[in-house]
């Protein structure tokens, strides 16, 4: 019941923000739309019983990665994209219907493939996504990937510093 209403609201919000991301010419508007998508997805994760992932989505994605994006946009003072004249009329006229057709095809395939798929999604249908369960899985079954990821992040930090530092002549 509550699940249907929340899904309707936040799925619509996610799609609207996604469309806005693609249509807007200014990177700051796009970034804000992406934050909107991420916030809506966090609510959908809560609906799916993934409490920990929802919180991480807010903290890491919306709170850290997107701040970094916004920071770079503000730092470089990126303005609106220039309009490039002379796009072919055919692509303008055909592009959107073909895109909608493609999405419709995908939706049709998913619908036909998953009609029999078990339980519908609602609150309390699955409660194994709390911090305790996810942490348990991370530090037992997935311990090696987890540790390798920390090395990956270390390398990324080093790479970012090397790339972005000032050249000392």
């Amino acid at each position: 019941m509550m699940g249907v209403i929340l899904f309707a609201i936040f799925a619509t919000a996610a799609v609207a923000c996604g469309i806005n991301l693609v249509l807007q010419r200014h990177p700051v508007t796009s970034a804000l739309s992406l934050i909107g998508v991420m916030g809506s997805l966090a609510v959908l994760y809560l609906l799916l019983g993934a409490e920990f992932i929802a919180a991480v989505q807010l903290i890491v994605y919306a709170g850290a990665i997107m701040v970094l994006f916004l920071f770079v946009i503000m730092l470089l003072n990126a303005g609106e994209e220039r309009k490039i004249p002379g796009k072919s009329l055919v692509s303008k006229l055909i592009g959107l219907p073909v895109f909608v057709l493609f999405l419709g095809l995908v939706a049709y395939l998913i619908q036909t493939q998953y009609t029999h798929a078990g339980s519908p999604v609602d609150f309390d249908a699955f409660t194994g996504g709390g911090p305790r369960e996810v942490g348990m899985a991370l530090f037992t079954t997935y311990l090696l990937p987890f540790e390798v990821t920390s090395v990956l992040i270390l390398i990324a930090i080093l790479g970012a510093i090397v790339l972005a530092r000032k050249e000392i002549d």
């Binding site: 409490e51 807010l58 903290i59 919306a62 709170g63 701040v67 916004l70 709390g130």
Partner: peptide, 16 residues
């Protein structure tokens, strides 16, 4: 039950 994570999440959005 994840109140502290919620608080951290809102806090990290505060910069916007």
């Amino acid at each position: 039950n994840i109140g502290i994570l919620f608080m951290l999440g809102l806090g990290s959005l505060g910069v916007y």
